[in-house]
Design a binder for these strands. Sequence first.
RNA 1: GCCGAAGUGGCGGAACUGGUAGACGCGCCGGACUCAAAAUCCGGUGGGGGCAACCUCGUGUGGGUUCGAGUCCCACCUUCGGCACCA
Length: 806
Amino acid sequence: METYDPQAIETRWQKLWEDENAFHTPNAGPDAGNAYYVLEMLPYPSGTLHVGQVRNYTQGDVLTHFHRRHGKRVMRPMGFDSFGLNAENAAIRDGGHPRDIIRDNIKKIRVQMKRMGWAIDWDREVASHEPGYYRWTQWLFLQFLKAGQATRKEAPVKWCPKDQTVLANEQVIDGRCERCGTLVEAKMLEQWFFRYTTYADELLDEMELLESWPERVLAMQRNWIGRSEGAELLFRVDELDIDIPVFTTRADTVFGATFFVLAPEHPLVPKLVEGTAEESSVLDYVRRTAARSFAEREEKEKDGVFTGRHATNPANGEAIPIWVADYVLMEYGSGAIMAVPGHDERDYEFATKYDLPIPQVIAPVDGSEPELPYVAKSDEAKLVNSGQFSDLPAPEGEKQIVAWLGGQGRGQSAVSYRLRDWLLSRQRYWGCPIPVVHCPSCGIVPVPEDELPVLLPDIEDYAPRGKSPLESAEDWIRVPCPQCGAEARREADTMDTFVDSSWYFLRYCDPHNDTAPFERAAIDEWCPVDQYIGGIEHAVMHLLYARYFIKVLNDLGFVGFREPFSRLFNHGWVDMGGAKMSKSKGNVVSPDEIVSTYGADALRLNILFIGPADARVDWQATGLEGMSRFLRRLWRVALDVADQPAGEPSGELARKANETIVKVTDDIGRRFAYNTAIAAVMELVNEIAHDPSAPGARFAVETAVSLIQPAAPHVAEELWERLGHRRLWEEPWPTADAALLQRETFVLVVQVNGKVRDRLEVPADLPDEELVARAKESPKVQAHLNGGEIRQTIVVPRKLVNLVTA
RNA sequence: GCCGAAGUGGCGGAACUGGUAGACGCGCCGGACUCAAAAUCCGGUGGGGGCAACCUCGUGUGGGUUCGAGUCCCACCUUCGGCACCA
């Protein structure tokens, strides 16, 4: 018998699919129906693929085939997130140009992807570094600018000293740069931002529109947005005739506010201390704080300095000292707080250190004496020492105090968010140029849309220096102002690559359009994405940015939906040697040798079979042997039955095959349980292999081949052909025959007092009483009944009988 | 500290809605084929007891609900992930 030769088979079918453009799904208009959009997160083309990434795309591939064979017109595109620091740093390190590095990497990865046999529509390929793509990234930026969603402002920002660029908050993990792990520093800089805080409520509330997202992703996004309800109160500084707002969630404690604290970066600090005895010590403190990294600032003991100024507590009119302290953050709330040491742990710590008064204004209702700080805020706590509000429960007290202060124009309800605006500019070379011009007289002027793209110039030296390398591209940066014609300069910063990836899934719908980023009709046909697949690492970052982008585009009328990804599946990553497999950790396993040895089908099966699709798994090369063995067994039984007459479904094997259809369909279509789907097909094949000449064997083999096709498409296609058919990838998915699923008998489990004592094969249609009678007849059961009285009988139809004596 | 997920054989895991715990695979043990090996095939494989039929214990720990709990409830332990000076 001819042996299974994965290399020959895989090469043959891959060539045929490519020649036929088999997985291209052309646009058919928004009314064509049956559209289904399967999307995996845009890969970053660093080096070559490893088996961790193979997991992601193989899962998407199974779904692609599955839905195609259910009659859907499936779009399954691929592209590359090809701007970014990785290629740029590689180029600086090894010489060469990032463009060349990226081009080579993409080429290699494309070859690898084709060798895996993934059903990708290559006609839709995009790469974010190509002018044909980033022209539209720039165009979208201009729409955001027009709409007031892109803005330039000075703000406290995070700076990575190694990468020499600012970072968005989402790109700082534990105070370190998400890319390189360097401790980030605080800087006050003027930068470009997307005002996504204006969409904070929509980003929260419209989670309800999502059909199926993992709860943990939603939790992480909620956490990240960090909405908190409270009040804004105004504290007066009489000496300077100004009011300073604070945000608080504890307006009920305002009578206990005994000092006031400003963040060191607060813009009023210099004004407050100007010309006072404290001026130099305060400014010195501000400078020292600025020099610290965020992590350092967080770890050190709280400290601060008195400004010499006082504010008036709006509740009781007392003058309270104003301090500057680094435990108050400029980027949250208003950068100033009322300090209530009796009822806040941080304020308590600070007051203790500097010997400030710590009055109690909240007490337990039960009259007990709490230890301070007492932070309870519930109906179990009531106000004390709070004037006319004393004795009110804390939540009610809060309401009344806010209303009372509101009546004097000194307070109102307010909401604050942890979320900050998305800082999008980067002081680096390899990214999308921001299409604006700085004119000395007109200010910021957008580049006219018909002049896009602003091409990224070729420059010799793009090493990071803390300002954009494009600053030194003199020919490029000097440009007449589009408005007044005066000599002006281009914006030299480039965009965060997350801007590129916030709209790529729209471009896939209309990838060759050179008059617009996309036609509305193409978007309406395919979007939102039906099934998105990617790693959890983008829970906040890409997924939040893309949601924001779509909301803005929807408000501007460019798309007709609010949420880009209806269903999200987070595949688990692959560990190797105890750590997540990744290029940067140097623990990657390449698919190339595996494909050469075992074939792509065996690798695909192994990565699907290794564990639940959403769980982290350890890479196990030993499984490849098992998968290979399974494929050889399938191959053998298929050739065995190939000369049997056409596959009539009959006998026990046909029934088993039909059960397998039900199981696999549910496992893939509803549960994303590819591992158990494969196990079910293995079971079927094992059963056939026990007696390949049994009735229904050929039908069972054809079913097994058909069901394994989404996971192992090459061998399935080859065997399908050898079984006398053609083009399995276009064949409708098998449906189970209800009549064949009927069993004539079943195994009745008999329990005595809940313990299994016997198993009886009984006719399927026996009535309950008869089942009980048979159960009682069993000698094994009688031995355990031991003549005792049966007090209760439980019958689960077609499953079990439980006889209870106790 | 807060939020989320998870703890099942030697290993990866299965058991979906409370109803046969350990499917499927790896590994291991025994056997067939072979001069031998590989490949392949057959059988076995949670612990303890028994010649055996069987018995008994067993899903992180301790309780509970139930005829029946890996699954539900309460408390706890451990691991992983997220957030954390956010006022």
